[in-house]
Design a protein around this nucleic acid. Structure first.
Lengths: 370, 370
DNA sequence: TTGTACGCGTTATCAA
DNA sequence: TTGATAACGCGTACAA
């Protein structure tokens, strides 16, 4: 059967090429000899349509090259776009260097699976995907809900914008404002547990490598001022946990959660052989891997001469040690956030969730050298 | 001025509480005493509206808690959603373990910045974000255009679906079908250049660590069968480049582009001390880092006893060597893809682009031991 | 089982 | 500079 143009064949040959707009459901319906609503039902599959009719509609669609209902019109009509936004506090490049973030993203995808929704990347700097400033932002993204990942100084703003727009949100490790459920973990007690383990092993000279304390990614020794002004919840909570056990421990601030930053911080902490710590608490596994790297470079044996504790429980690509660390359920966090989104969209009011981390004892911790 | 209800005030007092839906632009216009179209112009900012009127509109919006124009209706009307899809061949978790992919993603974000568009994650397995099967797919995502990342067996299908839907697409390292511009690099000549450099240094016993050859991620020695059936363009092109110079070089297939896989492959290649290669060509930097790791474990000095060449030019977190590698412009590739999208959406027909990689000589290559 | 009528919220076009 | 009108393409009561 020949594809039949939607317009009458008698159109003047000299007519300007009519805008080759995509055929619409109405065109398909006309071609199939049914009404638009019937065609709609045939596509959504939910309505009572005879198989014969359905087939006619599909044939017509094929003949016309109809690519299915326009998602834009569909979402206007339904009031939902089928898209969930993920707001990162940094540009894509930076965020996805962190395995924990990737795991959370993966968990989110898993959690929202029942929604059949897509995942739209946004950043809280107003741009999308980490690029320009003009980009689609949380101010105007066609999202049904949003997951805010990581506690950012700008979190409050983002929450405000979303409330104005009436878009439900969930925050992972963010300050829970009003109606925004928060998915978090037991940062303080978990770190305390790791510190206690070191104390039980006999360590007294312990140092800390912290995650960033501000948006400027200040590096260097942790001064009382920095500690007081620390704008990053995770950092200060984990720090407080360590301080509970080792109140006087010197700390070095890393500029990011990376092996390189961990190495640099550790080199600073291990510089003075006379005042060398026997254990280092790193606030992330990547930092811990960097600490181990630094130790190897300095000829310090891990764990014989230096114990190292991490945080996260990720597999660090290339690291040959089984890191002693606080295993947090990153994927589960993401999944919980996703499930909270599902719940919110169902009109419920999900509770905040706080997960528990568990101490995994690997081969990077031992009694201090005598 | 009093807020004026959109509905006649004579509505029966006993009327059921109307669903507290978000205020619309029409509500705002009514409240401000202007027409809907004027209010629209006030928000889009593009039309000629007096400042006084504009202010009245904004005030009304604030009073009503109007969160700005609904992006769904806007995109229906404008015929564009302001969203660009990125189709990955794997689940999010896997894709983002590869720094090259992340860089490309970042470049894409940069390239499409002029569009003010968001980035929607899709996979070619029909699901979004790597999760369930029901998820928003390229079959129904409200995207204005799509970037296909990586050559996947399913690429042809994806292209077909997109053509049916009339959605323009760009492929990175994918088989360029009909109207789909392709962004690629000179895989074969680049690898040949690296191999030639090794030959110039005096190497004759060279081995290869390849990227995966099939979707099953088969590992082990590269058999003639595997080489013949290799379904991954990048792998076979880079292989062919090396073969040009070292036709007989033994090769080991890695299951993924990771340090761990590179290490395992190298351990196999270096197992027999009597038949040990003096140089290894790795098809990615992560693999190369794994090769170096393996060498260190075996007490083989790099580059004194073993030269290593990578591919990509990424910074491997934690690697202390300056890798000799073929630097490909990953970000530029992504950016080019993004720019091609912009061009497509402007109604142009961008050409395919093939970038050139450059040999970076680091400290992992030297003359073979005598 | 199918068709009719209407509205989702916005913006482009034109006339005033 | 502003306002009226008509789509944009689809889903969904409701009637037939």
């Amino acid at each position: 059967m020949q594809p039949e143009p939607a317009e009458p064949a008698s159109a003047p040959v000299t007519a300007p090429a009519q805008p080759p707009s995509r055929p619409t459901l109405a065109d398909v319906a006309a071609h199939a000899g049914v009404s638009a609503s019937t065609a709609s039902l045939a596509f959504s599959g939910s309505g009572p349509v005879s198989d014969a009719t359905k087939q006619r509609v599909f044939d017509a669609a094929a003949a016309l090259g109809y690519g299915g209902p326009d998602p834009r019109a569909r979402s206007l009509r339904r009031g939902r776009s089928g898209i969930v936004g993920v707001v990162l506090e940094e540009r894509v490049r930076t965020a996805f260097l962190d395995p924990v973030k990737i795991q959370m993203l993966d968990g989110i995808a898993e959690g929202i699976a029942p929604l059949s929704a897509g995942l739209l990347l946004l950043t809280d700097s107003g741009g999308a995907g980490g690029a320009g400033e003009h980009a689609v932002s949380i101010e105007s993204a066609p999202v049904d809900a949003v997951v805010l990942v990581g506690c950012s100084p700008r979190l409050a703003e983002s929450v405000e914008v979303l409330r104005r727009r009436g878009i439900p949100a969930v925050a992972i490790e963010g300050a829970a404002d009003d109606g925004v459920p928060e998915i978090s973990i037991d940062n303080l007690p978990a770190t305390r547990r790791g510190a206690e383990y070191l104390r039980e092993l006999g360590h007294t000279r312990v140092a800390i490598v912290t995650l960033p304390v501000d948006a400027a990614r200040t590096r260097g020794p942790l001064t009382p001022e920095l500690e007081r002004d620390c704008a990053v919840g995770v950092t200060s909570e984990r720090l407080a946990g360590a301080r509970t056990v080792f109140p006087e421990a010197p700390a070095q601030v890393a500029g990011a959660s990376s092996i390189e930053e961990g190495r640099d911080a550790a080199l600073a902490l291990l510089a003075d052989p006379s005042a060398r710590p026997t254990a280092i608490i790193a606030q992330s596994d990547l930092l811990a891997a960097g600490v181990i790297l630094a130790a190897e470079e300095l000829g310090i044996a891990v764990p014989a001469e230096l114990s190292v504790v991490g945080f996260d429980g990720i597999r660090v690509d290339g690291l040959q040690h089984d890191l002693t660390t606080l295993v947090q359920p990153s994927v589960a966090k993401g999944r919980a956030a996703g499930e909270a989104v599902v719940s919110l969209l169902a009109g419920e009011q999900p509770d905040s969730v706080c997960f528990t981390s568990t101490l995994h004892v690997g081969d990077t911790t031992a009694a201090p050298p005598r």
